[in-house]
């Protein structure tokens, strides 16, 4: 099939670009909640003993017998997913500016994989976290 006309009357490429942007915005909202939860948990962990008589900072969990910082892992996963999706959006929006063909599969795979990693790390944070 030949390349579409210079301007699609239904503005489909523009809608698709906006849809990518919307998805990135949704991920930013998720980031805010996750980073906030992590910060709150870290500050509470350093102030209040959680498990034992003197179980202290959440950070000590890495070295000690307490649970590791799964919310921290979740925050890291959120950051990685955001960087990956930012790159995907940048590439795709640039492509959509001058062509309307389907995206490469790798782009879709990467953006889905970022969300999957975020999902799995939040399962860990919910199930194993404090």
């Amino acid at each position: 099939m030949s390349a579409p006309a210079a301007r699609d009357p239904g503005l489909q490429p523009e809608r698709t670009s906006l849809s990518w942007g919307r998805t990135l915005l949704a991920l930013f909202a998720a980031d805010l909640l996750i980073w906030r939860s992590w910060a709150v948990a870290a500050s509470q962990g350093s102030a209040v003993p959680k498990t034992g008589p003197e179980a202290g900072p959440a950070a000590r969990g890495w070295a000690g017998a307490a649970t590791p910082d799964f919310l921290g892992v979740c925050a890291l996963a959120a950051t990685v997913a955001t960087v990956v999706l930012c790159l995907c959006v940048a590439v795709r929006v640039r492509q959509l500016r001058h062509s309307s063909y389907a995206p490469p599969s790798s782009l879709m795979r990467w953006s889905a994989a970022g969300v999957v990693v975020l999902g799995l790390s939040s399962v860990a944070a919910v199930a194993l976290g404090p």
Binding site: P4, Q12, T16, S19, T23, I34, S100, P103, L118, S122
Partner: peptide, 26 residues
């Protein structure tokens, strides 16, 4: 190309649904 783009926006809508579920759980 319009069908392909519609397919792409549907994918993105599912991804947003997935994000909403994850954020809701957290």
């Amino acid at each position: 190309y319009r069908f392909s783009l519609a397919n792409e926006t549907t994918f993105l809508a599912w991804i947003r649904t997935s994000l909403a579920l994850i954020v809701g759980a957290l």
